[in-house]
Simulated scan of single mutants.
Amino acid sequence: HSSTSFHRLTRYSMKMRGFDKPKEALPPLPHRTWEDLRKTVADIEKSLLAHYAERGLHSTTQDNWQRFFRETDVDYSGRLTFFEFRDALLGKLRNIFKSDAEDLRALWDVLDPDGSKEVTYKELTFALYRLDVHSWPDDDDASIENTVSELNNTLKKRLLAGGNWYKAFCIVDKDGSGRIDYSEFKELMRDEYHGLAVRPSRVPDARLKAFWKRLDANLSSDVTVAEFIHFMRQHGAKHGMHRLTEYSKKKRGMVEAARDWTEDIANAPPMSGKALCSLATRLTEVLKDWLVSKNLRPSVGQPRLWGMLIDHVDARKQARLSFGEWRSALRDVVRLSPSCVS
């Protein structure tokens, strides 16, 4: 019969025992735009800041929301109803709060998207995050790739780790959770001592927000190390540490199959020794002119001339060329006339 017991029934237990009152119906939902909702949130945050400052409590916006939630949750259920949320704001902040009950009702529809008529602190902060990110700018792929390039260049200069996205992630993932939020990402980009110190003149805050908006595509409020690395590799493939071999490219279908020139070579018209010598001399003169245009030294023996051409066009670094590669080098690099190439 005592009402002073230290045991507290949960809402579920109260409901199962018939102690819980039925939830009161919510007021009608007024129409508000996203901009109106953001203004309401800004008004709440500004009012909470002033309210707690009067009490000598100076803290961040997130801390103010957490303190407000804890003080309003008088039954320690870990949840707030709309009426608790509304009455606490209109009661505590009545002298400084400019929004009205209808503004709070419209905001509640965003805070409680599943219609459970209750929100936890996690649901509250998650909804506020989505509402905030919704107003951030969007960027195209070219701008995203430019931001990745800036990040890679700074990573290369400061840590000698260009393309090492895992190392970049670990710089700010101090708790080793494998996740970072926007504040940690911003620390990675801006911090002079523990980050990469990318200045706003190179990557403005608007581009930083647009980048994060693309990075956190599912609006989960944080990204995992796997999501971060995948995104960076997708938009910064040219900066990656790992280079695919020709074999790997061929197996992945990234390289077209080489043309078989065997039949073409076999069917080539016969030429006399004198004609072949004349053609070789002509090719050598053209090659010398090309070397001069490249500020290279052409005053070396003829075999070395061809070696310099091979070094220039041998992308695979195998010190050898196929007939197709040799033909393309004469046509596209040395700019030999089409009749001579044929």
Rank of each mutant, 00 (worst) to 15 (best):
L131T: 02
W34I: 02
S293C: 04
E71D: 14
H242I: 01
S337H: 13
V292E: 15
S299A: 10
R259V: 11
R70I: 04
D138Q: 15
F169G: 09
S337D: 13
K98S: 08
G56M: 06
P137V: 12
T61L: 01
K23I: 09
N218P: 06
R259N: 05
I180M: 07
R316Q: 11
S322K: 11
G18T: 05
G115K: 09
Y52C: 02
F169L: 12
Y76S: 15
K117L: 05
L309P: 09
H194W: 15
L219D: 14
N95W: 06
K117Y: 03
P22W: 01
W136I: 04
D43T: 14
A280L: 14
V286R: 11
S5A: 10
F82S: 01
A101I: 06
S342T: 12
H134E: 07
F85A: 11
L107S: 00
S339K: 14
A25I: 14
N218L: 09
M232G: 00
K186M: 04
R214K: 04
N153E: 03
I96R: 04
V148E: 00
W108T: 06
W108R: 04
R331W: 07
N152I: 01
L107C: 07
Q62H: 05
V313N: 07
L283R: 15
R320S: 03
L93V: 00
S248H: 00
Q318V: 06
V172P: 01
T284V: 09
P269V: 02
H242R: 02
P28K: 04
W326L: 14
Q302C: 14
E84Y: 00
F169D: 05
A329N: 08
K21P: 04
A237K: 06
K23Q: 10
D36I: 03
L37W: 06
C277F: 00
S3G: 13
L9W: 11
V41E: 10
C170F: 05
G195V: 07
E45P: 02
K92P: 04
R202F: 08
V223R: 14
K317R: 13
L219Y: 06
Y247M: 08
A217S: 15
V41M: 01
R282T: 11
A329P: 08
L48M: 00
N146S: 09
E54D: 15
L321E: 01
G307V: 10
V334F: 14
K288W: 12
W306D: 01
L155E: 13
G324D: 13
K15T: 13
A280I: 08
S59R: 09
Y121G: 06
M16D: 07
W136P: 06
D173K: 00
R32W: 00
H134K: 05
R94T: 12
L90C: 03
Q234E: 15
G78I: 07
S99W: 00
S328P: 03
M16Y: 04
F185V: 03
K156S: 12
R282Y: 10
G236S: 09
L283Y: 11
A106V: 07
S272G: 12
R55P: 02
R55N: 05
P113E: 02
A25R: 10
K251Y: 01
Y247A: 15
V203L: 11
I144A: 01
R214G: 14
K15R: 04
Y193V: 13
H230A: 10
A315I: 02
